[in-house]
Design a protein around this nucleic acid. Sequence first.
DNA 1: GCCAACGTTGGC
DNA 2: GCCAACGTTGGC
Length: 154
Amino acid sequence: MTRNHWLVKTEPDVFSYRDLERLGRTDWDGVRNYQARNHLRAMRKGDLVIVYHSNAEPPGVAGVATVDAEHEPDPSQFDAGSPYFDPRSRREDPRWSMTGLAPVEELDFLPLDELRTIRELTGSRLLAPGNRLSVFPLSVVEFEAIVARAKTRS
DNA sequence: GCCAACGTTGGC
DNA sequence: GCCAACGTTGGC
């Protein structure tokens, strides 16, 4: 059984990699895009996940997480008080899923400018202009190139 | 099932 | 805060 690799985006003002470390784990909820949801559903325990800070100054890669719980219905879709409430979702057939993530290691922050210089990421989804998808797969080559670059810094 | 309007994302 | 790119919605 092979491990798959993924990238998730988060706005650090809302939830940062360090918040994940502080909490020890979290349910990655609030995803409201079907493609991203399908990726969450495809994640398996033990998969490795790059945590990317978007809408940040600067944006970039902050750390590595792992899947510690496979997908379940995201309860926030049924919570009328939640910003993620989806009145069209029915309990018999929940629309949205969440997946459990736990921290593995914080990386030396790799800003987007530097990500652009990683040869293995040329043509990758991560660097594609207009890529708004918040959860997507990385190849093992892409994943390892990111981690390796972070480790050759400082 | 088309497509215009609208909302959101995310780099700058 | 701007705005381009993209996804979703809803009228027809």
